[in-house]
Design a protein around this nucleic acid. Sequence first.
DNA 1: GCGCGCTACTAGCGCGCGCTAGTTAGGCTA
DNA 2: TAGCCTAACTAGCGCGCGCTAGTAGCGCGC
Lengths: 350, 350
Amino acid sequence: MSRHENTPPPGQSPPLRSRRPTMADVAAEVGVSRALVSLVFRGQPGASPETRERVFEAASRLGYRPDMAARLLARGRSKVLGILFTARNPYHVDLVEAIYPAAEELGYDIVLSAAVPTRDEHKAIEALIGHRSEALLLCGPTIPDEDVHDLGRRISTVTVGRRVAKAPVDTVTTSDRPGVREVVDYLVDLGHRHIAHVDGGGRPGAPERRRAYRDAMRSHGLGDNIRIIRGNHTEEAGSDAARAMLADDRPLPTAVFASNDQCAIGLLDVFTRAGVSVPDQISIVGYDDSHIAGLSHIDLTTVRQDVPRLAQLAVQAADEQLRGVREPGSYLKLESKLVVRGTSGPPAAD
Amino acid sequence: MSRHENTPPPGQSPPLRSRRPTMADVAAEVGVSRALVSLVFRGQPGASPETRERVFEAASRLGYRPDMAARLLARGRSKVLGILFTARNPYHVDLVEAIYPAAEELGYDIVLSAAVPTRDEHKAIEALIGHRSEALLLCGPTIPDEDVHDLGRRISTVTVGRRVAKAPVDTVTTSDRPGVREVVDYLVDLGHRHIAHVDGGGRPGAPERRRAYRDAMRSHGLGDNIRIIRGNHTEEAGSDAARAMLADDRPLPTAVFASNDQCAIGLLDVFTRAGVSVPDQISIVGYDDSHIAGLSHIDLTTVRQDVPRLAQLAVQAADEQLRGVREPGSYLKLESKLVVRGTSGPPAAD
DNA sequence: GCGCGCTACTAGCGCGCGCTAGTTAGGCTA
DNA sequence: TAGCCTAACTAGCGCGCGCTAGTAGCGCGC
């Protein structure tokens, strides 16, 4: 009983910003050992139902919360997944939203780290590792291939939407080829023959989409109409590309396929302002179906990736690496689906 | 020297996914005590320049990273700020981007926790506390007033954009009254007399903006034209409001002021689709100037909040609470600025 | 009487680090 | 030579928890 001395008086409300209560405080309050409180909070067998009840009651009375830092330190497996994402990228945000429930299902905790203009991906990744992440989930990382390689050697890693050949990391992504193929088929079916592509430079997924575009055009016998404008996965890149096309001597294409939604929105804007009506004079198709594309004022025809499934597979891959059931290096591709909205239609009759 | 035994051989590259190296490993590698390595990594005086050099060299050779969990546990102050934000809200994302550099400046580390559909704010907040956050920064929290109250009693808390009277928390926000006043003045100057407001229900800032709208209208002698449509801070709410106005017997207002940007975008969409041209037949003004408003295809006239400054003040307020220089309860309001873009103009002459 | 198994609990080490209170070596003064 | 000071370093406790190896108590059968 003597160790009751240093606990706060059993007042009604949790003490005001006092020292954070610990397991020992709860144990003393109930009159049991700390180990038993630990059992109760971990849901392990070995405590009687009445004791469990009393422990929970005392804990909530004292305002006790398990301390993650101590917990992570003490337990062998931290069961923490570190997520790297780009705050500005709405598609990444969608992914983060989907990763939470997927991780919870497998018993993982999540630590987020945002890459922002003042804080590059390297820094964000270091922070994740510092927080004891057991595995990293990288949403469309843009660090060089060799860095992904090194990272995979150091820690279990899963990349989403970015494939690095032979790196010891798992990859889940949406299969670009069929998605792009579907876009081109759809546009050709509508009657388009002059379909340009604004690519994403070296961004994750961009080279694959560029190649797929080329091949799809050729397979329709439109190899001579292939037109690729160098771009990026940003709105600015889309605007720039649109301006370049307007300034070009050649006639405008009747359709433009952008490497992602943000780029497509840039295109959309400049064309609309220049009096080129979408989709009457030019059709625009994006890629990702980020929630921004669905905004009805934008209403972009785009390629949907199955984000919840991507998230689930990514978490699962991380879990498999951690459990050691296989070597890293798996490469999962999901099917995508064309979502036709308002920015595409048949070409103007001329 | 005998403790060299259990360290990995001094190979060239960091060992492959081996046990995470600790300070003890680095110390053994260099041949000094662990305490000295600790000094070096904390940048404290007490180590010779040559030793520092050797420590850093050995650390990078072994691939050592300080372990945040252990560090947080051991040091008195964790120096961690927990940030709650809503992933879907572009304005929150802007805030998060700005908080990183502000926190770094004052030596704080950041832990993010996103509220998403499957994970409400309470859960997200518990996670932050569990991760040893010393203080919480809540971006536009929507939990009930009394919960904010209780939270403030338990832990240093700063709310951004949400004021809870008499709660023991600091608040930084943008002064709604002058911003709204500026909007109404601007629209009245353009010649508008029928200016409606789609409010944000009980969302952070919404009641203030609603009141300010009423007052501004009255002060222009337009009290009889006050028209408030119940809304929310979502696109759907904006769409719904627009549809309601179109279905209404009364004539359309010539201008609508929405409680935030997302809501404004919903309005924009439905009106445009219904053939009501913006801004020729109806002007639309938003609030926040989130990066989405600046997307040139949307090009929304809106009220800009000084996000970097808000972030800086929020971090500063948290720091002051933690240092105990004053009691919590401060209320800082920043000036806002009307940003005129393409969705507003003079009313149609009739 | 004894051993057995079972439930409900406890003692105490260790996770990786911060930090206080030291100790040691070397240079300086008197 | 003794005495003192400082720079450079070390020993070791404690942060809050997980977890292994226990122990105490009890009912049971032989």
